[in-house]
């Protein structure tokens, strides 16, 4: 579509933006901006317009502008959204309220502190730990399409944390490992090449792992990549229950200890 067709002349949209400037004030406030309305603009474009043309002090994260990097997640009218994926035309002519992702601590304006999330990814060992170590010369780890299908959905996660901002269990208890990290743990547990489910189990089968989840299911609804963390967590609960009763009924069937910490 030609760019000229997509501009509605003189039309504007009102943006109410969450501001938090710790050097200036302890308390956050809402600031109103008026930006041009364009058919093909997303909320992120409007924020960039504000930063470039109106108020250079506004801070927010973004990178790819195409829904793959996962850095532009914010609350748009109370819903966790990728702002590069949310068109102004879907809200126009109503005002648009932009806030940092719910439940996370705010560092500045629309920027949240994501250290906790990164820690959690590390705790659940969200990476492949091969069941058998192989030399490069022995060739690749092979996997059938059916084995790939088991975990593929969970591997689509882009770490945007929208699911955390939708999760009241995380809102109540920030130590909860939470939807994406648990879905990623499950992603590696279900990978036929991986051999570390038992190591991960100590974390994900703990109180702060899957058992903090009350299956609200909002994580699945807001996820832009259709990951369905809620399903991953329910499946892990079933696994944890099997694991528990196995350890009660056959206590001598010792689980293998990991050779050393990896």
């Amino acid at each position: 579509m030609a760019a000229s067709n997509t501009t509605t002349s003189n039309a504007v949209v009102t943006m109410d933006v969450f501001r938090y400037e710790p050097d200036a004030s302890e308390l956050p406030r809402m600031q109103r901006y008026t930006v041009p309305f364009r058919e093909d603009w997303v909320v992120l474009d409007a924020l960039n317009h504000i930063k470039d043309e109106i108020d250079g002090t506004l801070s927010f994260r973004w990178s790819c502008r195409m829904g793959v990097c996962g850095s532009c997640g914010m609350m748009v009218n109370g819903e966790p959204r990728l702002t590069c994926n949310s068109f102004l035309r879907d809200y126009y002519p109503n005002p648009i309220r932009v806030e940092p992702l719910s439940y996370f601590p705010v560092i500045r304006d629309l920027i949240i502190n994501l250290d906790h999330f990164l820690d959690k990814l590390e705790e659940v060992k969200a990476w492949l730990i091969p069941a058998e170590d192989r030399e490069l010369s022995e060739g690749e780890y092979r996997q059938s399409p059916a084995q790939l299908a088991q975990y593929k959905q969970f591997s689509m996660c882009i770490n945007c944390m929208l699911c955390y901002a939708a999760c009241p269990a995380y809102g109540h208890h920030s130590e909860f490992i939470g939807p994406a990290a648990l879905a990623l743990a499950q992603r590696y547990n279900m990978d036929s090449r991986d051999g570390a489910s038992d190591e991960r189990a100590d974390v994900i089968f703990s109180e702060e792992g899957i058992w903090d989840c009350t299956f609200v299911g909002e994580c699945a609804r807001v996820c832009p990549k259709n990951v369905d963390p809620a399903s991953a967590i329910q499946q892990a609960k079933v696994e944890a229950t099997k694991d528990f009763f196995k350890s009660v009924l056959v206590p001598w069937g010792k689980r293998q200890q990991p050779a050393e910490s990896r």
Binding site: Y20, P22, E26, P105, V106, I107, N113, D115, D119
Partner: peptide
């Protein structure tokens, strides 16, 4: 975590 001095 590299928590900044102030966060809301």
């Amino acid at each position: 975590p590299a928590t900044p001095a102030k966060q809301h």
